[in-house]
Amino acid sequence: MPDTSTASLHWDYRDGRVAAVAAAVVYSLWVLEVVLPGGGAAQGALAEPGSPFGEFLDSTHRTASILVIVAAALGLSLGTRRTRRWLLVSWWSMAAFGVLSLATSLLPGACRVSTDVACAAESLVEGGQGATLAQALLSVAAVVTALVSVIALAVNRWNADDPAWLFVAVMAALQAVSAVAVLVLAGILYWSSGDGDPGVPLGLVQRAHLVTVALWLLTAGIVPGPWKRAHDGQETAAAR
Rank of each mutant, 00 (worst) to 15 (best):
A20H: 05
A22N: 04
A22V: 15
A22I: 02
V25I: 15
V26W: 04
V26E: 07
S28M: 02
S28V: 06
L29M: 14
W30F: 15
V31Q: 08
V31E: 02
L32S: 07
L32M: 10
V34W: 11
V34N: 07
V35L: 08
L36D: 09
L36F: 12
L36C: 11
G39M: 08
G39C: 03
G39L: 04
G40W: 12
G40L: 09
A41C: 11
A41Y: 00
A42F: 09
Q43L: 05
G44N: 10
G44T: 04
A45Q: 09
A45R: 15
L46I: 10
L46E: 13
E48Q: 14
P49W: 01
P49I: 13
S51D: 07
S51W: 08
F53W: 01
G54T: 10
G54Q: 02
E55I: 07
F56N: 07
D58E: 06
D58F: 11
S59F: 09
T60F: 06
T60L: 10
R62F: 12
T63G: 15
A64E: 09
A64M: 06
S65L: 08
S65I: 03
S65N: 02
S65K: 04
I66A: 08
L67F: 07
V68W: 05
V68R: 04
V68I: 13
I69K: 05
V70E: 07
L74P: 03
L76I: 13
S77H: 00
S77A: 10
L78C: 03
L78D: 01
G79E: 12
T80C: 15
T80E: 05
T83S: 14
